[in-house]
Design a protein around this nucleic acid. Sequence first.
DNA 1: TTTAGCACTCTCTTTCCCGGAGTGCTAAAG
DNA 2: CTTTAGCACTCCGGGAAAGAGAGTGCTAAA
Lengths: 348, 348
Amino acid sequence: MELTERKRQILKVVVEDYVRTAEPVGSKTIAARMGGSVSSATIRNELADLVELGYLEQPHTSAGRVPSPKGYRLYVNELMEQQRLSVAETERINASLHLKMEELDHLLSQASRAVSSFVNYPAYVTAAGRKHLTARRFDLLAVDERSCIVVMMMGDNRVKSQLLRLQLKVDLEQMPTLVNLLNTHFTGISVDEMNQELMNVAEQVPPQLFLLLSQTIAYAVDALEEASQREIVTAGASQLLKLPEFRDADKAHELMSFLADRKESLPMPEDGPMKILIGPENVTEVLKDTSVVVASYDIGDEMRGLIGVVGPTRMDYATVAARLSGFADGLTRLFGKQELPPKEEGKE
Amino acid sequence: MELTERKRQILKVVVEDYVRTAEPVGSKTIAARMGGSVSSATIRNELADLVELGYLEQPHTSAGRVPSPKGYRLYVNELMEQQRLSVAETERINASLHLKMEELDHLLSQASRAVSSFVNYPAYVTAAGRKHLTARRFDLLAVDERSCIVVMMMGDNRVKSQLLRLQLKVDLEQMPTLVNLLNTHFTGISVDEMNQELMNVAEQVPPQLFLLLSQTIAYAVDALEEASQREIVTAGASQLLKLPEFRDADKAHELMSFLADRKESLPMPEDGPMKILIGPENVTEVLKDTSVVVASYDIGDEMRGLIGVVGPTRMDYATVAARLSGFADGLTRLFGKQELPPKEEGKE
DNA sequence: TTTAGCACTCTCTTTCCCGGAGTGCTAAAG
DNA sequence: CTTTAGCACTCCGGGAAAGAGAGTGCTAAA
């Protein structure tokens, strides 16, 4: 049996109607929506074929039809019309992205809230470096004889700093030596190598300096690890409760606590600007009857981020995809504008 | 009519049974739970009195009794037995609080997750300074001729820093002058005063330095505002869905989106180590039929934080209160240990 | 003041029934 | 061979009715 053009049209109508109403779609409705050029009986024959082909499902005999995951997939791949964002929408997206760059964490959580409230589904956002973050430059600022400030600039030009309490008094004269040591031996290498290097230089350094050195390295390692760890922020989980498919508290609870506590296993595609995962295409069990739409954006040249949306398989893929890529573009632009300065090995 | 000791005992039984089962409590059950010293008929008489006195309510004739807010209040104030945390629980709490001090934000979100999963209700956490944060010390580190790093130590000894891109080349020789200016004129004053002061010094400074100066101050103002702004982190909202009173998706949705989006209006009592707000005692409309338990903890001497729990009025107040104050103590201790160094006007 | 007894009330669950929507099949028409 | 009208049939959802159960309030006696 073949998938004629008419069958495809029917499938399209079914998907779009079902997405709108969440009710199985009947032959009569379809006939009406096709402009009355064919009768409902004809549609019924076609529907039976579509079920047999696996594109539609029937909740029970004598109910209308509902798209199967396979049906959605065909719809997304071939039938769905690329939707264009209206100017107003684009503006709204950009307006919601006038964020301060200060803290990446805050930015992620703001962005995910914005996305979620714009698509009316739960959303998630991450940012991750393309390669491992290293320290690029160190400084130490003496505060008093018992404390000093470590300043570390990282590979992505973010700067981290903290007050360090010293176990021993340190001769102020020696500070420049130490800074120099830090900048020559501990920049541009991984955290493992930093720990390694710390052992290597142990003997070359007077003991009371070594204490400060290792405190500094410990801080650096922490900060680098934290900064390069992929943090995932979710928002808008409560939106699920508005959907008929999640009126059931148990179902809703399962998904919501997944989004809150086990979000690491949300889809994180490595490639492509956008990915749509429909129902069972998801590997994670909880997501087996939801769909996920993920888009990626660029943070300068070094980093890449993902924004995703989780919803029922009955999702308005066209709109969600359009809005999501609007956001991705917006974010890429935002980060591009505030571009980090060009990289050159800046070892003091 | 008087509130005899026996009535109080009955009230206590009703509260505790209702908290456990979420079902209206009948006279027979109560009689049994009182050790069989009185008959259910006697209890019935007493119950009728308790309803008249306003401590209990009857969902409908011929149903058991349910505590009214007034009843819970009496229970909390006078009937409830102070509950003691078991050693295991205390250990569990402290274990969950082995947090790194790195970022206050992370810490808050970790703490609120821990609290929530420990009491099985949604939780919220904040930290807020007792007074306005000021800058205590500035440094500028030249990176290249077009960029430098601002380092600012704040009143609470946290250090913030960022790379600054300069619009103009700046003479390296002049940097120390600028740093000196920053440290003499811009430390220890509010952000408003900082902006003010910026105007004042405008004429005394060569123009190309002034540009850098104002960029620095702009960063400082941002960072100080962000750091002193009260951030509220919520966690565990999905726990609500396990409770029978929130099986109704609309109700759950209302409260959950409140917790996600309008959490600023959660109770933030100014005083006392712990506060319990029962049902209509809450000013916020959404919380009118929920209860909130809030405890405060200290972050060193300068700051104070709150941890709170939101749940149904049918809440195990004794346990929640005990665990919450366990957490509060744990946090106070945690921050006390990692105490910030003593303050002395450190204007370099 | 307490208690036993009992009729009564109200909710919750189950069952049954009915209307409506939609189907699948058949047979005729294009 | 495809399309269409017609029609019996299926299944869901909602509402009514009935019954069970829990608990009450009242009365009268202890």
